[in-house]
Structures are given as C-alpha cells and as structure tokens.
C-alpha cells in the first residue's frame, strides 16, 4: 500500500508521458517543451523521493497535469481557447521567450529595488523606533493603523498620483513590505530577552554595538519569517500594479493578452509567476540557512 503510494506520482508521470505521446483529438505543432517541463518536475520528485511532503505535492501536481492534458486533448467539444492545451502553453516558452524573459527581468528589477529600499528603511527605522521608548509609543500605534491598508487598494491612486509608473509601483511594493518589516523590527527590539540585554550591558556594549551584535541578530529569524510572507504579497501587489500602468513585466503580460482573449499566453504567464515566486522563496530559504546557523 505504502509502496504504491510512494510510486503514485511517478505512475502519474508515466501516464502523462503516454497522454502526450499517444495520438489524440487535436493537432499540436510541438510537444517536447511540455514533455521537458514534466520531465524536470519528475527529476525533482526523484531527488526528493524521501520527503513525504514532496510525494504529496508530486501527486497533486502530476494529477493536475494529467487531468489538464486529458481534458484538453481527449474530451470532445472542449473550447481550447478558454482551456488552452498544455503543449501549446509550454511551447510559448520557446517562441515567446524574449518577451517573457524580459517581463521576468523587468518585474524582478522593480521587486528587488523595492525590497532593498523597504528592508533597509524598515530595519533601520524599526530598530531606532523600537529602541527609543518615546518614539515607539508614538509611532507604533500609527503604524498599526496604516499597515493593514492593503497596498493593492491604493495602487491605482498611486499610479495616477506619482510621475511615472515605475515610481508608483516601487512605492506600492515598498509599502507592502515596509510595514511588516518595520513593525516586526520594533516588536523584536523592544522584546529582547532581558537576560541577553543584561549580559550585553555588563559587557559594556554601547548603543552602536547593541544594534550590531544584539538587536539585529536577535531579530533575524523573525525577519526571515516575515520576508517569506512579504515575497508573496509583494509579488501580488507588483503584478496588480503592472496590470494598471506598465508596458512590460509579468503582470502586464497576463493582462495584455487577457484583453486579446489569448488565454494560452495568459496561462503561460501565470505559470511563470508561480515559478518565479517559488524561486524567490528558495532563495530566501538558502539565505536564511546561510545567515542563521545558531538553531
């Protein structure tokens, strides 16, 4: 039973390969891109075969691909404009490579710039405000009011208000990250273990050293937790902003082709967005493991 369960994602993969290779209702110009993508997922699943989470995810992903492939190529009367055929979607990654990769680059550039600004300001201001009790008591309640306002809400306004789309989207993405970093930083600085603080003070560590050797490292684990959430929300905000005013980027790509009812490209864009977010999360995890070795 257990063995079969472990084999299931791989059986589903084989089924998918069969569905792709065997003759079907529809003509596709090229199928190897989809085959390759499925193969890449299968390789990851084989590498991670000892993780039961990976097995579960593998089952879901492969089953989804099977259903998608079966529904679009084997069921009669399916509207393949609304339900694009996977082979066609994945073939776009070759034929539309330039536009998609430029979209990725353009989105990531905005994202990294905003992240950099939000992290630096959030960490520095959060530490200062957390450290000085008066500043904390005045600013924390204000931050509590402003932070829950979802930036997506004011992104159209920001696009209208600010001189360029670029500055508007940087502002919106910035605000989606800044508040959580800022507030988490305040909380962690003002709640450092008293034993640690006492110990630091008896070592004669002065204010600057406190920030560098105690407060910053103490807040790193929490900072990374909030970062994982921030990446997802910021990407959401980014794509939403791009849908309003951009001329490139992943959000723009999806929106632009939606207007032409080119849902093959829409689905391709959505998959890329998911992929990019996943890669960003992997990056954050690697960074966390490199920086936080103490537990």
């Amino acid at each position: 039973m257990k063995k079969l369960y472990r084999l299931l994602p791989h059986l589903l993969f084989l089924l998918l390969v069969a569905l792709i290779l065997l003759p079907s209702n529809v003509e596709v110009p090229s199928y190897w891109e989809f085959l390759l993508a499925a193969g890449a997922i299968e390789v990851v699943l084989i590498l991670k075969r000892h993780s039961s989470a990976a097995t579960n995810i593998g089952i879901i992903v492969m089953a989804f691909l099977d259903l998608w492939e079966y529904y679009t190529t084997r069921v009669d009367g399916v509207n393949t404009m609304l339900y694009p055929i996977p082979q066609k979607v994945f073939a776009l990654y070759i034929t539309d490579f330039q536009r998609i990769s430029m979209g990725v680059v353009s989105s990531l550039r905005l994202l990294f710039l905003s992240f950099f600004l939000a992290l630096t300001l959030g960490i520095v201001l959060g530490m200062l405000v957390g450290w000085f009790e008066n500043a904390r008591k005045a600013l924390f309640p204000i931050a509590k009011v402003l932070s829950p306002i979802p930036p997506i809400i004011y992104s159209p306004y920001a696009v209208a208000l600010l001189p360029s789309f670029r500055s508007a989207s940087i502002f919106v993405i910035f605000s989606s990250i800044f508040w959580s970093v800022f507030m988490n930083m305040i909380l962690s600085v003002s709640s450092v273990d008293k034993k640690i603080m006492d110990s630091a003070r008896t070592l004669n560590i002065k204010t600057i050293g406190m920030f560098a050797y105690v407060l910053l490292p103490n807040s790193l684990p929490m900072l990374f937790n909030s970062l994982t959430v921030s990446v997802s929300t910021s990407f959401m905000v980014l794509t939403a902003a791009e849908m309003i005013g951009a001329t490139s980027g992943l959000g723009w790509y999806v929106k632009y082709y939606s207007d032409f009812a080119d849902y093959t490209r829409v689905v391709a864009g959505i998959i890329v967005i998911g992929f990019v977010v996943t890669m960003l999360n992997v990056l954050i995890r690697l960074l966390r493991n490199a920086l936080i070795k103490w537990r």
Binding site: K195, I196, D198, S199, A200, T202, L203, N204, I205, G209, Y213, V214, P217, N218, L220, I292, W294, R295
Partner: peptide
C-alpha cells in the same frame, strides 16, 4: 558578571562570545 542563566549570545560561537567580551573590555 556571570549570571545563573546562560548569558551567552545564541548567535555567536563560543569563541566569538569570548572575543566580543575581550573587545569591549
């Protein structure tokens, strides 16, 4: 000062903890 409860900085190795003390003394 030595406290009852371990007062080392969890984010530093034993050596770094000691060096930090030396540098500030």
């Amino acid at each position: 000062v030595v406290f009852q409860h371990y007062s080392l900085f969890p984010w530093m190795t034993a050596r770094c903890n000691v060096i930090l003390g030396i540098n500030h003394a």
